[in-house]
Design a binder for these strands. Structure first.
Lengths: 158, 158
DNA sequence: ATGTATGCAAAGCGTTTGCATCATG
DNA sequence: CATGATGCAAACGCTTTGCATACAT
């Protein structure tokens, strides 16, 4: 995602309007590595703009996704998360606390052998690693929680 | 997923009951490679059991997922799809028609370099390839649709 | 001044749940 | 016969939309 000011220019050049609400949303997203949900963006914006509507947040996020400025992530949580980091990278999600960190693509070229493409034109791939983050691992050992084996689908206890 | 009869035995041995509804659902899923949504399973079961409730389908699918008999897939469509094929494999989804085919894991061991694990205990990974299937490619060339470039996020025209 | 964005509330969609009834084991 | 499953409808969480008002350009 571009910097807020450049984004504003882009919006204007497309005939879209730059409202205070949108500027606030841009600023919350800029450099945000927490992969926030729409609701979390809403909460963050409300701090400095208490009267903003959740619908406005949703509409603006959709606009940004359509413009290719942010990515919408579906990590099987029943809601979308948003990532201003749009270059190719993958995600590592903790099945207990739902925290998400970026992982570089590295050399995992992640190509599909021609015989496995089934005639498709391949556009890209999404990779999500599932695991347990250091913090949750600690709590697990303390709480003697069931071993995180059959999980990842339905996370462990609390 | 096991065969229907073996699944019935498993259910009974766990104190779960084998009802006609469940048996029908098992049979629709058995060997089903279409990655159906709950609604699609519902439609298929209704053919031979018109009075079944959608809630029953949902409840049974959830049970099967919890037992590890089927996988729940989240392909960013806003609804879950179900796969009776539970051994490690990935998916290739057509961004236009939403069709999904399995792709073998192959040698794509898909491991995360230790320095990229950020201290997590890795449990697994989901890989989804996005592309355009042969059928849609054909239609695209006929309809002179916009090149499928900026898509995969919001699919092309109709 | 024009057209787009906003806030609000309602609707939409997929999914879950509460409850009375039914049927499996 | 006891427990768990069913169907129905209501509730749920996330997201979109309709509409009248407000504001950026």
């Amino acid at each position: 995602m571009q910097r807020t000011e450049q984004l504003c220019d882009k919006f204007r050049s497309l005939g879209l309007k730059v409202t205070p609400q949108r500027r606030h949303i841009f600023q919350v997203l800029e450099g945000n590595g927490s992969h926030p949900s729409a609701d979390e963006v809403y909460d963050r914006v409300k701090v400095s703009m208490p009267d903003i509507s959740l619908a406005t947040v949703y509409n603006t996020l959709r606009e940004l996704v359509n413009l290719g400025e942010i990515r919408s992530l579906d990590l099987g949580e029943g809601r979308s998360r948003y990532d201003p980091h749009t270059d190719g990278h993958h995600h590592l999600s903790c099945v207990r606390c739902r925290g998400v960190v970026d992982v570089a693509c590295g050399t995992h070229a992640l190509e599909l052998a021609p015989e496995q493409q089934h005639g498709h034109r391949i556009l890209g791939a999404d990779v999500t690693f599932y695991g347990v983050c250091p913090t949750c691992l600690e709590q697990e050992s303390v709480n003697q929680t069931a071993p995180s084996l059959r999980m990842w689908g339905v996370p462990a206890s609390d």
